[in-house]
Structures are given as structure tokens and as C-alpha cells.
């Protein structure tokens, strides 16, 4: 007799926990050959707010962790991801990828984790500066994470695009709330299971599924979000996000290049503030002049 397969209940990932949406709503995206993928949570405004609270509560601590530690955690994500390769490949195929394309995307995704793990303790050293001011001061500029970043993940690239978007954000010490690809949500949901077992503190990455049109205004007007990173936006979405962002002057970063394909430290810098610190240098000729 054929064994009955156990199906998975797809959930959100908020503050390290796996709730269904508080709204009780779901949607049923179709995969390859029009097959319904499942009852995917249609995340609500309230889910988003809860996720921002979770992100804010851990953003400070995550940003202050040693870069070495963040680096190891990103490396751990790669380890967990590799171990689940077959599952991700299967989901990518359900989303319509060929076996070869699915294999390739998984490999790119794992390699991106390694790539950005390496940047955690290098971008500061590479892009900070000691500024040669024309006075007796020690003056230096360093990067500091923006805080909580909301993400509209790429719609078409379910895994590599998603990781290429969020890894630079967390590598730089931010926490984020991600709205996954609406049509291809499976990898995002499984990624949450990877993250939950990879030493990443709960709340650093929160993953919602749902409808972009519905949540766009709620996300971009939220007053405790510092920045928005987005891909695959329509012109109307772009304009709406930028106009909404004026309420608290969120930084709006629209990825022009495909995050699945563009490995670079610049997406890390895009969600960093630059802080410049001055301090006088005492001159031995004029004692006390240091202040």
C-alpha cells in the first residue's frame, strides 16, 4: 500500500517563532503545471508590526556583536543550507525551475552565505576612513547599522535573490523584516527553518509571506523602520514607497541589479550610516591645547 505523505503547514517566522498569520488568512499560489503549492499565510499589517517589534528588540544587540561572531553565524547558515540542499532544490523545482537551474541556484545561495560571512569583519576595514583634517584633531568615519530594515524580496528569484538581498543587511548588523516572493514563497519559508537552527538570534531575520500590494503602505509608513530594501518594483510601487518613506525619512534602497547575481560589498554599505568622530590632539608645544 502506498504510504500517505505528511504535508507541511507553511508558517511565518517572527522573533524566532513560527506562527501562522494572526489574521487567519491564506492564499494558494500555483507552482509548476498549475499545481497549488499549499495554503500559504497571507501575512497582515499586524504580523508586520509584530515582526518590527521583534526586529527592533534584537537589532541593537546584533549590531553590537563582534563582526567575527556575525561572520561565524553567517557561515553556519551556509552549513545548514547545504545540508538541506535536496529540499530547496525540490521547492525550486515546484516553483518551475529545471533540475539543473534549481541545483545551480542552491549552489549560488550557499556560496553567497560564504561570501557575505567573509565580509562581516572586512567592510569596516575596507571602507572606513581616517580623515586628514587641517587641524589638530583625530577624525575618523566608520559604518554603523541603520537598525531595522524592511525588505521586499525579489519576486522571481526565490532563494538566491532572497539571500542576496538579506545577507548584506544582516552582515552589517541590521535586523530585517522580509516580505517573501508572493508567487514563489516556499524557499523563504524553509529558509526560516534553516535560520532557526543556525545560531542566528531570533528576530534578526523575520520572514512574512503575503501580498505586496496590500502591505506596501503599511511597511513604508511604519515609523520604527529605518530603511527599505526592495527589488522588482513597479514604477507605481517605487513612487509610493518613496513618498511614504518621508514620514520618518526612511532610507529607500532600490536594488537595480539582480541580488542573485551581484556579489559586492556595496549592498552592505547601502544599509549603513556613516558616523564621523572628532577628537582634539594635544600639542606638546601649547600644553593644554588639546581641548
Amino acid at each position: 500500500m502506498k504510504r500517505i505523505e505528511v504535508l507541511k503547514t507553511y508558517k511565518l517566522y517572527i522573533g524566532g517563532k513560527f506562527p501562522r498569520t494572526e489574521s487567519g488568512r491564506y492564499y494558494t499560489p500555483e507552482g509548476r503545471g498549475g499545481k497549488v503549492l499549499g495554503n500559504i499565510c497571507q501575512g497582515s499589517r499586524k504580523d508586520f508590526r509584530n515582526a518590527v517589534v521583534a526586529a527592533r528588540s534584537v537589532a541593537g544587540g546584533w549590531g553590537k556583536r563582534d563582526p567575527y561572531n556575525r561572520s561565524q553565524i553567517l557561515y553556519r547558515i551556509a552549513e545548514m543550507l547545504e545540508g538541506r540542499a535536496a529540499q530547496f532544490e525540490d521547492e525550486l523545482k515546484q516553483h518551475g525551475s529545471t533540475a539543473a537551474a534549481a541545483r545551480k541556484e542552491l549552489q549560488v545561495a550557499v556560496d553567497q552565505c560564504i561570501y557575505y560571512a567573509g565580509w562581516c569583519d572586512k567592510y569596516q576595514q575596507t571602507f572606513s576612513s581616517v580623515n586628514p583634517v587641517a587641524s589638530a584633531h583625530f577624525n575618523f568615519s566608520v559604518y554603523q547599522p541603520m537598525g531595522v530594515v524592511a525588505v521586499f524580496a525579489p519576486e522571481k528569484s526565490a532563494l538566491a535573490g532572497l539571500l542576496g538581498t538579506i545577507l548584506p543587511i544582516i552582515a552589517g548588523g541590521n535586523a530585517c523584516v522580509v516580505l517573501a516572493s508572493e508567487s514563489k514563497p516556499l524557499c523563504a519559508i524553509t529558509l526560516a527553518e534553516v535560520l532557526a537552527t543556525s545560531d542566528l538570534p531570533g528576530g534578526v531575520i523575520n520572514i512574512l509571506t503575503g501580498n505586496r500590494d496590500e502591505l506596501l503602505d503599511n511597511v513604508s509608513t511604519h515609523m520604527d523602520v529605518n530603511a527599505i530594501v526592495a527589488s522588482d518594483l513597479t514604477d507605481a510601487h517605487k513612487a509610493a514607497i518613496k513618498a511614504n518613506a518621508t514620514h520618518n525619512l526612511k532610507r529607500v534602497i532600490i536594488r537595480k541589479e539582480d541580488p542573485a547575481k551581484s556579489e559586492s560589498p556595496y549592498p552592505i554599505l547601502a544599509t549603513q550610516e556613516i558616523k564621523t568622530t572628532w577628537h582634539p590632539i594635544e600639542s606638546s608645544i601649547a600644553a593644554g591645547s588639546g581641548y
Binding site: A134, H137, N139, E273, K275, T276, T277, H279, G290, Y291
Partner: peptide
């Protein structure tokens, strides 16, 4: 949370020194 922080000095500016803010 500020783009320019002066330690034991204030209101110093220089062309080599980036200036600009956080938040609003």
C-alpha cells in the same frame, strides 16, 4: 545615533570629514 560626534570639541568642520545625519 548621530552622523557627526565631537569628543571634547564641538562645531568643527573639514572638507575631508563626511558630514550628514541619521534619522530625520
Amino acid at each position: 545615533d548621530a552622523g557627526v560626534v565631537w569628543g571634547n570639541t564641538f562645531n568643527k568642520f573639514d572638507p575631508t570629514s563626511p558630514f550628514g545625519g541619521f534619522k530625520e
